[in-house]
Design a protein around this nucleic acid. Sequence first.
DNA 1: GCCTGTGAAGCTATTCACAGCT
DNA 2: AGCTGTGAATAGCTTCACAGGC
Lengths: 211, 211
Amino acid sequence: MKRIPSKTVERLIVYRRLLASRGDEQSRHIYSHELAGLARVSAVQVRRDLMEAGFSGSPSRGYEVEELLDSIDRILDAPDGMKAVLVGVGNIGRALLSFLAGRGLKIEVVAAFDSDAAKIDRVISGCRVYDAQTLPERARAMGAQIGVIAVPGPQAQAAADALVEAGATGILNFAPVPLVVRTGVHVEQVDIMRALEKVAHFAKQEKAREV
Amino acid sequence: MKRIPSKTVERLIVYRRLLASRGDEQSRHIYSHELAGLARVSAVQVRRDLMEAGFSGSPSRGYEVEELLDSIDRILDAPDGMKAVLVGVGNIGRALLSFLAGRGLKIEVVAAFDSDAAKIDRVISGCRVYDAQTLPERARAMGAQIGVIAVPGPQAQAAADALVEAGATGILNFAPVPLVVRTGVHVEQVDIMRALEKVAHFAKQEKAREV
DNA sequence: GCCTGTGAAGCTATTCACAGCT
DNA sequence: AGCTGTGAATAGCTTCACAGGC
């Protein structure tokens, strides 16, 4: 299967979400400029992305929504879903679990791990918490392809190593630490403090321009 | 002041963090390839970034760490700090507050807002929660330049409008919704579910390659 | 020899401009 | 007339390659 650029993948995820949450009373078709308006990107950007996705519309009525959704699903999702495990059940971990709970997404968090005895064996948003010691065997046994790291910085690399050992090929890292993994493992960094500092910087710039 | 590219700003934040957390027993100087190793980027990338930042090293001993930190501070931070308000005290909001609490960062969260009566007037990680109704006046009175949106999607745009009305020039948005703001306001999107779906997609690809 | 600083090249991402269809 | 699909142009970002200095 053709490789889709990273940025395009991000937008396809957004398009899918927007299309799926459109009211059912909406038209069965949508024009690139309409979808662009919802996603706050340019119309040509939408057309490019859908082109990358190998999807075509018709000049007369635009893109057929159901087909488009199927098409995006086919590209983004694995046919039989993906299993993820969460390492670190702090605020972020809990936020993630509560988002995913119920939502019939193709990604299921099958286990959480923590080294805090007070959390072990609890069930949070339908997900059981296990002793972090048991991560490598358990994650492997459960067939988890994705690991979510939500532990404090100093423990993040160890968590990553354990996840890779368990066979994960994708890691979502909330710890503010650059991870080292062998090739063949995709790491996605979500650095909240960095995002905040970045906003602060540009807010300062905008402020200065305001005069 | 010269505009620094977005990606460079992100890395400067990471460099600063890495340098600041280096043990004190470390050398007073650092070479581009050393910093690059810590940040998991290329050495030439580091040199370019520091060049953008208007900072120079010496070929013989590299970059002087203290000076470099000062230099990055001068670029990234506002001299008298920045004030932020948080809208939505859920898991993400709490995570953010607990990260920032104590940490003597140049960004201070001076107030939080929520519409849940059970949360109003509570103090979380040293930050008081106010009624969301009072946001525009209170945020303006407090001089908040940054707004952090951590409410459910459907309420995000209203929160953004209120923040802009209150005079914010930077918004950090955790809601999975593209925001519309007038020019002169910088929006930074942190989309956790999108990040997870993105990891899932690339994990799938890596898996497929694994054969 | 090993470093920094940087022009030039290469790569990725976005937008422009327009041909072609209905 | 208004849409899609896309080559060509542009902009933004990263790496290459090397001059210059201890």
